[in-house]
Design a protein around this nucleic acid. Structure first.
Lengths: 247, 247
DNA sequence: GGCCATTTGTCCGTATGTATA
DNA sequence: TTATACATACGGACAAATGGC
């Protein structure tokens, strides 16, 4: 039976070392998902079933699943089962956050580079964004700005509204990758930025900047739109420079 | 002796569920790296040492290390030891490649979105790139184009030179994050693109496109530079559309 | 509520492979 | 070659979480 062609012994042919067990199990599980054409959320065999099917011990299978879980290729629910993951950017976020934490002890280099990328994503797609801009989107963006202003007056943070705003802005592109990258970079920013001191003054500036972005987009003025994005990120840059000068 | 208290019962104190062992070990190892201000390449304690220090079993520590290894936060060298990882984009690449493989059975949506992002990164930074463009960079880029042309005449692929070209192009930005993202997206592209058929004709077009990019940059003509980038990615888009129409 | 089967989480002991000295 | 230190892999046992009866 079986033709589990398996792999192992024969592919180290020449000189190089044989691939480690855990690595081959990872590939086998990925191949299983592809072969069965599974989609995110679909159930995978249980650990013991995978052990039989792949001819590996439970430890090896578990460690392989751990790796795939970190990449969000699989998702594990304790006491329930293992499923195909959502293939999100969670790994990117976790990695970048750790990088930022590691570098923040000296400087905020990662945060500065992050702002550059975030700004580029929104400025670079200015054309397509304005082309697809309509009243519905404008209303949705206005609602988020309103929410931000309301919370600022209450002295509360407005993380949710800010995240929603930036996601709405690039949504008309209908590019999942860009949307997910935008969300991922925002998430990293949200974790890292609080390491800088922030003021109420700064919060009001930021809210106004968001309003300015909507206005420029509504007017279909691409140059103004790009400038508004620039203005939006400027305060963060200033705080960053200020912080760097102090150290 | 003992006080291995073992765990379990007491730490689910209040209402929400206690974090799982593996998860806390992951955080502990990350905290260890931050606390000791370790840099990529620095050695970590051995598995058994970590077991003692963290009060967890080998399995838990190993599985935690597996997760951190997938994120390139730690790097394991068999029979040698565990070290702080290079914090690369390896996880992003692996995740995106799998996404593309999963979607390629139906369409090449991920590849299309990928091209959009790659193009944006280079077009969006046109200003700073041209501002920092000098003879040295031009010579380096010309060398890569020359290498590509030579290989094409020999009927060989020119992956290395192509990768080097695009990395050189955004190098003057001195933004590590952008450079690594560019490299990561290129890597994904290189794995996914071969699923499309490619011709010698296409290869020559691509080489010429690279030469056009250099010329535009050397002339300091930003508009031409942006058009050249557009031209460079156009053939891939066409192939993509062609492939989609056939299915 | 309790009980039970299933599944993942954790631990231990041991043996093997790998790299350095 | 031998010895040592280390990561890799295995198998079994028990704990914890989930869902259904």
């Amino acid at each position: 039976m079986t033709e589990t062609v398996s792999t192992s012994t024969q592919n180290l042919s020449a000189s190089s070392r044989a691939p480690l067990r855990g690595q081959t199990v990872i590939e086998q599980i990925k191949a299983y998902i592809l072969r069965h054409r599974l989609a995110p959320g679909d159930p995978l065999p249980t650990e013991s079933a995978l052990c039989e099917e792949l001819g590996a011990s439970r430890s090896s299978v578990r460690e392989a699943i751990k790796t795939l879980s970190a990449l969000d290729i699989v998702e594990v629910r304790h006491g329930h089962g293992t499923y195909v993951g959502r293939l999100s950017m969670a790994a990117l976020v976790e990695g970048l956050v750790f990088r930022a934490q590691l570098s923040s002890q000296d400087d905020f280099a990662v945060l500065g580079e992050l702002i550059g990328v975030r700004q580029l994503l929104e400025q670079g797609f200015a054309g397509p964004i304005l082309a697809a801009f309509d009243d519905e989107l404008r209303a949705a963006l206005d609602a988020q700005v309103e929410e931000m202003r309301r919370r600022t007056d209450l002295g509360e943070p407005f993380v949710e509204a800010d995240r929603a705003f930036h996601l709405l802005l690039i949504q008309p592109l209908r590019n999942d990758l860009v949307s997910q990258l935008t969300a991922a970079f925002w998430d990293v920013h949200a974790v890292v930025a609080p390491m800088l001191s922030t003021s109420l003054e700064h919060a009001r500036e930021t809210v106004d900047a968001h309003a300015g972005i909507v206005t420029a987009a509504a007017n279909g003025d691409e140059a103004a739109f790009v400038r508004a994005i620039e203005t939006h990120y400027a305060p963060v840059r200033e705080q960053l420079d200020y912080h760097l000068r102090q150290s």
